[in-house]
């Protein structure tokens, strides 16, 4: 079956996720108002990553798609990370 009917996700799932995303947003705003030094960056980026994973898995249906899609998304994200790291090999040690 090529055009098989997809999994239907109930409305409330989306609303739960939305609630979670808003809570995460407010949390990251609150946390970054406290001065925690370099930890602030780490926390803010961690929360952003967490939010993205929800958007990717639920809103963008990766949870229900073929694993190939998730694998490709992870690979592309890693690629960007590696490019940043290799570029920093220059700047950190210059």
């Amino acid at each position: 079956m090529e055009n098989e009917t997809n999994h239907i996700i109930p409305y409330r799932t989306y609303l739960y996720v939305l609630a979670g995303l808003i809570v995460a947003t407010l949390t990251s705003v609150a946390v970054t108002q406290i001065s925690l030094g370099t930890l602030t960056v780490a926390i803010a980026l961690f929360i952003a990553a967490l939010k993205s994973s929800f958007v990717l898995r639920i809103f963008m249906h990766l949870k229900y798609e073929n694993r190939m899609f998730s694998a490709a998304v992870i690979a592309v994200t890693m690629l960007i990370a590696v490019v940043i790291i290799i570029t920093l090999l220059d700047y950190l040690f210059r």
């Binding site: 803010a44 980026l45 952003a48 993205s52 958007v55």
Partner: peptide, 9 residues
């Protein structure tokens, strides 16, 4: 949306 999630922080 995803891009904004990173731009915002």
């Amino acid at each position: 949306d995803l891009i904004w999630i990173f731009l915002f922080p």
